[in-house]
Amino acid sequence: MPHRLSSALWFCAPFIVLIVLWAVFIPYFDVNPRLFPHLSSVVQAGIEGIQDGTLVQHISASLLRVAVGTVLALLVAIPLGVAMGVSPFVSNFLTPLFRFFSVLAGIAWIPIATLWFGYGFGAITFVIFNAVFFIVTYNTLLGVSTIPIHVRNAAASLGAGRWAMLTEVLLPGALPNIVTGIRTGLGFAWRGLIAAEMIATNVGLGYMLFVARDFYRTEVIVLGMIVIGVLWLLLDRLVLAPIERATIERWGMVRRA
């Protein structure tokens, strides 16, 4: 697939330019490492972090929180979104609450979350949950309510009962929207995660960044920022975007009505 390869190269090109500029100009202007690190010291910090296991520990702590928070959020958000999509009453009743809480979805919950769950895993997972929950619920609602009424009628007149309607029509019909919601929600969650980890824990990428600042270890800070960005790009480009594309493009989606 030469097209895939060339588009991947084009994606990497600006980063390569940035790295080259970094490698050349920071030593050239003799920048104080307390303000910005040399490329070589960041690479060094990365190697050390892998060798002594701390980097892996921080990464796995962060990923675990995202995974658990996201899965819990999906378990609640998808059924609720379907219920809202099917019932105008439920949807009308809950919409004002959703408007209100979607503004708060994020690190505004950290203070109270730490009171409820203590510092660490629980509080941070709760922040992730919030970030994913509201957007996936809304997207599920959107997905269900945009399934053409004729498609639902067709299923009913082919003998689909309530359960089959849910599993054969509503969920697959809403799936492209749900996937888009997960993708957007995880983007928010990832940002919220780093912020929350700076405040409310003692392990994780955000914590790694924040603590390094106390020791003026800019190479660890920059390493952390790079890892955060790269992890997200890998997750988004290699997992989420292909799933989204597979459902939407293959099905040429519903909207033709």
Binding site: P148, A154, A155, S157, E168
Partner: peptide, 27 residues
């Protein structure tokens, strides 16, 4: 609605997430 009355719609109303075969096998 019920399976005793089959309906053909102006907008086709096929299930986009199902293959042609699965659409026909749905009933």
């Amino acid at each position: 609605p019920g399976a005793d009355r089959g309906v053909v719609f102006q907008s086709f109303a096929l299930f986009p997430w199902r293959t042609v075969l699965e659409n026909v096998a749905f009933g």
